[in-house]
């Protein structure tokens, strides 16, 4: 077989590699930020000052009266969902077989992305439209 019979690299290959590199980098950068946000969140909500026992609607209203906690929670929501969703995307790609005719992997990835977008949308909406006077 002569060398000429090899096909040239497909144009898609390069951008795919670049995306996976950015995804790898994002997992690490978001991880560092999440250490502070998530461990801080768990410390405040579950350990300090009575922990989960003191949480109710009034407690949430008190926290979200401050832009500081609103921004904390918003950043935490977005980073954790994108980090976790990207992690699950990798795991599905590792285990779900990609057999011709059976599209298990495609459907798992689709369900994952729809759930992630839905939860991100719901969470963001709640932080922005929270009303301490309802009910």
């Amino acid at each position: 077989m002569s060398l000429e019979t090899f096909s040239a690299p497909r144009s898609g290959a390069k951008s795919r590699t670049n995306f996976e590199m950015l995804s790898w980098l994002f997992m690490r950068i978001s991880g560092v930020v999440l250490v502070f946000l998530v461990l801080g969140h768990l410390l405040i909500m579950n350990i300090l000052d009575g922990g989960v026992q003191r949480i109710n609607f009034g407690f949430v209203a008190g926290r979200w009266a401050s832009p500081f906690w609103q921004i904390w929670d918003l950043l935490q929501l977005w980073l954790a969902i994108i980090h976790g969703t990207n992690g699950l995307r990798t795991i599905i790609a590792d285990y779900a077989p990609q057999k011709p005719g059976r599209q298990v992997r495609f459907w798992l990835q689709t369900v994952l992305m729809i759930s992630a977008v839905f939860v991100l949308f719901a969470g963001t909406l709640v932080i922005f439209t929270f009303d301490p006077t309802i009910g």
Partner: peptide, 18 residues
């Protein structure tokens, strides 16, 4: 986390339910 965002979203629906 998916469950937790949804249970927290109840603060937007009904304080008593939350």
């Amino acid at each position: 986390l998916l469950v937790h965002v949804l249970d927290t979203a109840l603060v937007r629906v009904d304080p008593n339910l939350y």
